[in-house]
Simulated assay, not measured.
Amino acid sequence: MFVPHAFRFENRAEQIAFMKRYSFATLVTAVDGLPLATQLPFAIAEREGVLVLSAHFAAGNEHAAHIAAHTSLVMFTEPHAYISPTHYDKRESVPTWDYIAVHAYGKAKILDGPEAKMQAMEQLILCYEPAYLATWQTLPDRYKQGMLQGIVAFELEVTELQAKQKLSQNKSITERERIAAQLEKGNAPEAGLAPYIRATIRTT
Rank of each mutant, 00 (worst) to 15 (best):
G146M: 04
T138M: 01
Y105A: 00
K20T: 04
H80I: 01
N187G: 11
G146I: 04
R91F: 13
Q165D: 05
L193K: 12
M19Q: 00
Q119W: 09
A55K: 06
R176A: 00
R91I: 14
L53Q: 03
N61R: 08
I201A: 08
M121N: 03
D98S: 12
R142E: 15
A153H: 10
P95G: 09
T96A: 02
A64Q: 05
L73T: 10
G106H: 01
H5V: 12
T203E: 15
L36G: 14
F154P: 09
I151Y: 02
E155F: 08
H66M: 08
L40T: 03
T203S: 15
A65P: 00
A37R: 01
I151L: 03
D32S: 09
A45G: 02
A194Y: 10
P130F: 02
A58N: 11
E14V: 07
A25I: 04
R47Q: 07
Q182E: 14
V102L: 06
S54D: 08
M75F: 10
A163F: 13
A120E: 11
A116H: 10
Q39A: 13
F24N: 14
E78F: 07
T29I: 10
V3Y: 04
I110W: 13
S54C: 07
R176D: 00
L36T: 10
I173T: 15
H80R: 10
V50F: 05
E46N: 02
A116V: 11
S84M: 11
E115G: 08
L161W: 11
P4H: 14
T159A: 12
Q182R: 05
P35I: 10
Y22C: 00
P189T: 11
S168N: 04
N170L: 00
T174S: 15
Q123N: 06
F9Y: 14
P85N: 01
T29P: 06
N170P: 00
T77S: 15
L27T: 12
V102C: 07
R91T: 15
R178V: 00
F2D: 14
F24S: 13
